[in-house]
């Protein structure tokens, strides 16, 4: 009995030490970017909140993020939708009164995940860059809306097909403005949080264009502003923070239930085996008692 008690104490130490060690590890964790986590069960997504932006989760259809300094004209909407939802349908959840004109489409890959990218003009003023991704029995949308009618703001990315030449900024510009043909007036390299980007200023048909783009593995990712370039940097940082940090909590509850049921079933099987052996032993005992009485 003393040995058993000693063994129990050892087991308790074995129990508590790993867990307390695990808790001690928590103190070493680096500070993390603030994240917003949606509460939609199986369609749960997680999105980082860009620095200087605020979250509005009061709407049931979407999560809205706006820059603190420019909440009226600039916003990013994130939503989890039923599979197969079209981009226009997602945008209409934000405002179903908008008249949308599709300007360009593309497919880009971030961190190995493909997004369908569409650029729209809003006839009532402003424009939209919408990222759509079908995954885990849902469609996820990240939509940037510019409501400032005085400027255009688009996010566009292009990647070359197999055997095609590397994409240039001109290719991206012509995807949005087919007649665009201008050389940059000014170009500067900018070291941002996620890489070195090229800032360029153009003048074409008396319009000023400001672009911030990055060329990577033959593809070009660009934020384009037809205007003075006041918002291009802020929008670039926010969209890339959201897109690169965006992740979906997988819906794998079925596997969890399978594991729980299997664990309980194994325990019940063991208990059942003990019970069956006990019952058989009792039958043996009855037989023995019967034989004893007969003899």
């Amino acid at each position: 009995m003393r040995h058993l008690i000693a063994l129990c104490i050892a087991a308790l130490l074995l129990t508590v030490l790993p867990a307390s060690h695990a808790q001690a590890q928590e103190a070493d964790t680096l500070p993390t970017i603030p994240y917003y986590t949606s509460q939609e069960g199986g369609r749960q997504f997680n999105v980082p909140i860009p620095a200087g932006w605020q979250v509005d989760d009061s709407h049931s259809d979407y999560l809205r993020m706006t820059p603190t300094a420019d909440a009226e004209t600039n916003a990013i909407y994130i939503m989890a939708l039923t599979p197969g939802t079209e981009t226009e349908e997602a945008i209409r959840r934000i405002d179903d009164g908008w008249t949308l004109n599709r300007r360009a489409t593309s497919e880009i890959i971030f961190d190995g995940l493909a997004w369908d990218l569409s650029a729209f003009d809003i006839a009532e003023g402003g424009n939209i860059s919408a990222f759509m991704q079908a995954r885990d029995n849902a469609t996820y949308a990240v939509i940037h809306v510019n409501r400032n009618a005085a400027v255009d703001v688009y996010m566009m990315g292009l990647q070359p097909g197999i055997g095609e030449d590397a994409i240039t900024l001109d290719d991206v510009m012509r995807r949005l403005y087919p007649d665009f043909n201008a050389a940059p007036d000014e170009t500067t390299d900018l070291l941002l949080g996620n890489a070195t980007w090229q800032w360029s200023a153009f003048t074409a048909d008396e319009d000023a264009f400001t672009t911030l783009h990055q060329q990577r593995a033959g593809s070009v990712y660009a934020i384009i502003e037809r205007g003075g370039g006041e918002t291009v940097d802020s929008v670039n940082r926010a969209i890339y923070t959201v897109i690169f940090g965006f992740f979906i909590t997988p819906d794998n509850a079925d596997f969890m239930w399978a594991g729980i049921i299997a664990s309980i079933a194994i325990l019940l099987l063991l208990i059942g085996a003990y019970y069956a052996r006990h019952r058989n032993a009792e039958k043996d005992l009855q037989l023995i008692e019967q034989l004893e009485s007969e003899s």
């Binding site: 058993l4 063994l7 050892a10 087991a11 074995l14 129990t15 790993p18 994240y35 986590t37 749960q44 997680n46 992740f247 909590t249 997988p250 819906d251 794998n252 509850a253 596997f255 969890m256 594991g259 729980i260 664990s263």
Partner: peptide, 28 residues
């Protein structure tokens, strides 16, 4: 719910303790 792994991560609360339970029983 573990945000990256989802609900299946909850099996960890049985998976690891059951190993140590086996360790205890084999210790006996």
């Amino acid at each position: 719910t573990d945000l990256e792994q989802g609900d299946v991560q909850r099996l960890f609360y049985i998976h690891m303790p059951s190993f140590f339970g086996a360790f205890f029983a084999f210790g006996a």
